[in-house]
């Protein structure tokens, strides 16, 4: 497990549509302590996912300084720490069974083969897929595929866990069960998590801390600490109130429709 330190992170995308470059992130400062669950919240296109891509090393072309557990994230550094990543889509290899998909990640991370069976069985059991280990992804529902992706991310015993709107493609009922599942796993493992979402209620339900982004170019608008006790409950009235006030921070308006000062 590891702490994360991001200093003055900026990112410019160059493309044919934007030959002069499109500023996606503008001077992000973000420090995340060990075992913290942090949500990045903001409208789509605000660069939240870019932060994740930089953190996991997929996108090494950025300005600023990014360290995970004290190690600089850069192209030259390769793959210096273990990352668990849950994408918006399950991103399973369709020709492999559920078990082999988890093993693919284990092997990629260089984890000894003797540990595979215990880890697969343990994590697939934890996400409720013990009976589906030998099924192929297309035989599973969307929620079950995303459970597989969660099992895969935890199975590698990551130092940091990155999640990019992992439940936004699911129906609300499935998403609820998945959030509860994620929270209970997180309470056991206490991984450092960065969770990207545009759903205020989801952010309040999950996070210790919410970092609210502005629309493009992405800047940090405000931070909110969520002090609700865990385990949390969907029915909690305080959760609802919090999510309303966080929504106002995101949209920049009050309940009466007047603008909040930034």
């Amino acid at each position: 497990m590891a702490d994360i330190e991001v200093r003055r992170l900026s990112k410019v995308y160059r493309s044919r549509a934007h030959p002069d470059g499109l500023l996606a992130l503008d001077g992000i400062d973000l420090a995340v302590a060990d075992h913290q669950f942090v949500c990045l919240l903001g409208p789509s296109g605000c660069g939240k996912s870019t932060v994740l891509n930089v953190l996991c090393g997929l996108d090494p072309q950025y300005a600023g300084e990014v360290r995970v557990a004290g190690r600089v994230v850069s192209r030259a550094n390769g793959h210096p720490f273990r990352v668990g990543y849950v994408f918006q889509e399950p991103r399973l290899l369709p020709w492999l069974t559920v078990r082999r998909n988890v093993e693919f990640a284990l092997q990629s991370e260089g984890i000894a083969k003797s540990e595979w069976r215990a880890r697969c069985d343990g994590w697939l059991g934890r996400v409720g897929l013990a009976d589906f280990a030998e099924a192929h992804p297309h035989e599973l529902s969307g929620g079950m595929q995303q459970r597989t992706a969660i099992a895969r991310a935890f199975a590698v015993d990551p130092e940091i866990l990155l999640m990019d709107e992992p439940f936004s493609g699911l129906d609300e009922l499935t998403a609820r069960t998945m959030r509860e599942l994620l929270l209970s796993i997180w309470l056991e493992t206490k991984k450092t998590v960065i969770f990207v979402t545009h759903n205020c209620f989801e952010a309040c339900f999950l996070a210790d801390r919410i970092v609210v982004f502005t629309a493009r170019p992405g800047r940090i608008k405000r931070e909110v600490t969520i002090e609700l006790p865990r385990p949390r409950n969907y029915e909690d009235a305080r959760l609802f109130e919090l999510s309303v006030s966080v929504t106002h921070h995101v949209t920049g308006t009050t309940a009466r429709g007047t603008r909040l000062p930034d």
Binding site: F87, R91, A105, S108
Partner: peptide, 15 residues
């Protein structure tokens, strides 16, 4: 996107 997934989990270029 599948290639990115493999890269995030540390799969070598060969893999």
């Amino acid at each position: 996107r599948l290639i990115d997934m493999a890269r995030v989990f540390g799969a070598s270029a060969w893999r």
